[in-house]
Design a binder for these strands. Structure first.
Lengths: 167, 167
DNA sequence: ATCAACTCGATTCGTGCAGTAGAGTTTATG
DNA sequence: CATAAACTCTACTGCACGAATCGAGTTGAT
């Protein structure tokens, strides 16, 4: 699952809308300026988010965009799936399950792909915009997803010499 | 982290080489035929794998390709990183850490990307070719990675009505 | 010697990503 | 009601990358 530049822009814009939730609509231009995103491109993205009923627009003078529901009700997976498609590293979950059933030679490989997709889904479906913005409000029930062993804490404790294997 | 068609071909070819480990070299043509991969494209892929010292070639008549080390010593992440690049869904781990340090506005977002990459890395760095081929040999120490809650068992127990949310 | 087999640069074709342009429509407000 | 602010939407471009294919060249087994 690759997150494109467009996907990143979408997430940034949504974070900004989440921070200003319940403070009225924001103009595309202001989002673009404050987040430093290409304005016309952002326009396209917001249109997609609107068609997916995640945000809504207010037309005319003093118009702009705002979230359609509470930040705690918008999962990151909603946004990513919309803009960048399935979370699986290859194909989608449906297709992988089918391959696991039919392609006995490569079953274990596809099963692994599915495991990777499930790991990503577990994170991204359990994290909402509210978890991601510093918002004072209650947000969802917990911090950025229940921390399992190995996940880095929010303030990462940078130990300069501790460089591990890189991507 | 998207796995391309090329990446899938590479993994399939490597699985086949792993199955025949210690049985001499196999011709490109035979791999292509048995795995049903485009021959000339596969040639390119094997060349890359050779330059990365994962496989080796035997030239001349009776030549072909074979693994350079035991299947249990070849991690899937080795192959995927070579062919398709970093495991992170956006950028690479290094870059994400840097963004987490510098971009305070979006810190939590990049942290999440890093969590996703770590989840994928944890799976793909702990699974070797030996884990993936049905091989009778000892392979590595365990099955396809220690199963944590939520990972599908190898034989997936298909309950027809139990369709969950799809990608 | 000869042929199987790998090596490798060049090329093609299509798709998708990233972004731009501009005309059209709606509506708040003076 | 005029008008400017703002969204709506279609079209288009440039470029890079993915997925191959081709063919000439080199090496080595027998």
């Amino acid at each position: 699952m690759r997150i494109s530049q467009k996907g990143l822009y979408a997430l940034q814009a949504m974070m900004m809308l989440a921070r200003r939730y319940n403070q009225g609509a924001i103009r595309i231009r202001d989002i673009a300026y404050e987040e430093d995103l290409p304005e016309k491109f952002l326009e396209l993205i917001l249109l997609e988010l609107k068609n997916a009923r995640i945000v809504e627009s207010v037309r005319g003078a003093k118009g702009g965009y705002q979230l359609r529901r509470d930040p705690s009700e918008i999962r990151l997976s909603d946004i990513i799936r919309l803009i960048d498609g399935p979370l699986a590293p290859f194909g989608d979950a449906e297709q992988l399950r089918s391959l696991i059933d039919r392609d006995t030679e490569h079953r274990a490989l596809y099963q692994l792909f599915l495991d990777v997709r499930n790991a990503a889904a577990r994170i991204l479906e359990h994290t909402t915009l509210a978890d991601i913005v510093g918002g004072k409000g209650p947000g969802s029930k917990r911090g950025p997803v229940k921390k399992k062993a190995g996940e880095t804490p929010v303030l990462p404790m940078v130990v300069p010499g501790s460089r591990r294997r890189e991507d």
